[in-house]
Design a protein around this nucleic acid. Structure first.
Lengths: 126, 126
DNA sequence: CTTGACTGTGGGGTTTCCCTACAGATTATC
DNA sequence: GATAATCTGTAGGGAAACCCCACAGTCAAG
C-alpha cells in the first residue's frame, strides 16, 4: 500500500508516516515510478503504528519506542522486567496526574471566587 | 541584577531567561561593560516570571502569556470574561486528566496481569 | 491528451528551552 | 600587576512530533 492509504487508516498525516519511518519505527520498500520512487508499505505497519500509539499514551517518546518495538519482537523481557517497566510508567503517569489535579483545584478555587465577584458587583473590572 | 542571578532565583537557565525576554515576557535595560553590553534586570521580573510559570501550569503557552500579562496589568477583564476564561482552562485540564486516568487504568490492568504471570511461572520469557 | 489526484523531496515553522563554542569583562588571587 | 576563574554576550545547532508549502514527476480517468 502507498503512503496515503497508510496515513488514512492509521490516522496519521503523510508527513507523520514519513516521520515514523525516519525514526525507524516502520519500514517500506521502494517502488519505481518512472524517474520517481514511491514508498510501498506492508499492511503490517498498521499494527505497528497501533503499538506506537499505545506506547505514546504510556508516556514513551518515539525515540524510546524504537528499541521497545524491537525488544517486543525479540520477546526478551521477563515478567519481572515487564513489571518494573510498567511500574515506572505508572509513576510517570501518576506524577502528571498529580500536577493536573492540583491545577484543577486551583482553577476551581479561582472560579468560585470570580463567580461570587460577578454576583456581588457585576460592573467592576478586574 | 544580572542574568545569572535572575536565573538562579527564578529556577530558570540563563538561556531560559533570555528566551523569556525574546518572547516579550520580561524586559531588561542595557548596561555597558567595556565593548560588551550586559542585560540588567529589575527584581520585579522575578514576580513576572512567577506569573508566567503559573499560567504555564494552567495550560497556556508562552506565546499566549505575553498578551495575558499585559491584560492583567491593564486590568481590563470583566468578572464574566474571567469566568469564561477559567472555565475554558478547566476544560483543557480535565481533558488531559481524563486521558491520563484512562492510561493509568490500562497500566494497572496490565500490571496485575504480569504480576500473576510472574507468580505462576517465573521462568518464562514474555 | 489533458486534468486531477497522487507521489516525492526540500525546506521552513512550531514550542520551550538546552548546549556548545568562541570571546570579551570582571573579580579574586598571588 | 599579571593571571586565573567566573561571568557575560552572540551565534548556531538540537530536541519532539509533527505540519505546511512549493515544486515536480506519475498515473488513471474521461
Amino acid at each position: 500500500m502507498l503512503i496515503s492509504e497508510v496515513a488514512k487508516i492509521a490516522g496519521l498525516s503523510k508527513d507523520g508516516v514519513r516521520h515514523y519511518e525516519e525514526m525507524g519505527l516502520i519500514a517500506s520498500t521502494e517502488r519505481q515510478a518512472g524517474s520517481r520512487v514511491y514508498r510501498e508499505y506492508d499492511p503490517a505497519v498498521l499494527t505497528t503504528i497501533e503499538k506506537v500509539r499505545q506506547a505514546q499514551r504510556l508516556g514513551f517518546s518515539l525515540k524510546e519506542i524504537g528499541p521497545l518495538l524491537k525488544a517486543h519482537g525479540a520477546a526478551n523481557l521477563t515478567p519481572e522486567q515487564t513489571v518494573v517497566f510498567l511500574e515506572e510508567r505508572l509513576d510517570v503517569i501518576r506524577g502528571k496526574l498529580k500536577v493536573l489535579q492540583e491545577v484543577e483545584a486551583f482553577i476551581k478555587t479561582k472560579l468560585d471566587h470570580y463567580k461570587k465577584e460577578k454576583l456581588s458587583r457585576s460592573d467592576k473590572k478586574i
